[in-house]
C-alpha cells in the first residue's frame, strides 16, 4: 500500500521535503512509516520522543494502523500563538 507522508517545520527542513510518498507492507502502523523514514534519514530520530503524529489530519498514535491512501504527518513540538 501507499501512504502520503507530511513533515513540518524543522522535520521538513531535516528531510529536505514536506511531502513524501512511501510504499509499505500491509498491516503497517504509524510506527512502520516512521521506521522507514528514519532508516533513510537517521537525523529525524532526534524527534522520536517529542513529536506528535496525525493520520488524515487527526491526532493519532504510533501504534495506529495506516491504510492505503492515508496521509501520515509527523509534527515537531508546536510554537503557535
Amino acid at each position: 500500500m501507499r501512504v502520503r507522508v507530511r513533515l513540518f517545520a524543522r522535520l521538513r527542513d531535516l528531510a529536505g521535503a514536506g511531502e513524501l510518498v512511501r510504499d509499505l507492507p500491509e498491516q503497517a502502523t504509524v510506527q512502520t512509516v516512521w521506521n522507514a523514514l528514519t532508516t533513510e534519514m537517521p537525523s529525524l530520530r532526534e524527534y522520536e520522543r517529542t513529536m506528535s503524529v496525525a493520520v488524515n489530519a487527526e491526532y493519532s498514535r504510533m501504534a495506529a494502523a495506516v491504510h492505503d491512501g492515508d496521509e501520515v504527518a509527523f509534527l515537531p513540538p508546536v510554537s503557535g500563538g
Binding site: 513540518f8 517545520a9 524543522r10 527542513d13 517529542t50 513529536m51 506528535s52 496525525a54 491526532y59 509534527l75 515537531p76 513540538p77 508546536v78 510554537s79 503557535g80 500563538g81
Partner: peptide, 21 residues
C-alpha cells in the same frame, strides 16, 4: 495547535519549539 514559528533574527534563523501536542 499544529502551528510553528521560524524566527529570523540578526545573525541567523531558528525554528521555535514549545509543547509536544
Amino acid at each position: 495547535v499544529p502551528i510553528w514559528k521560524r524566527e529570523h533574527f540578526e545573525g541567523g534563523e531558528v525554528w521555535l519549539e514549545g509543547a509536544t501536542a
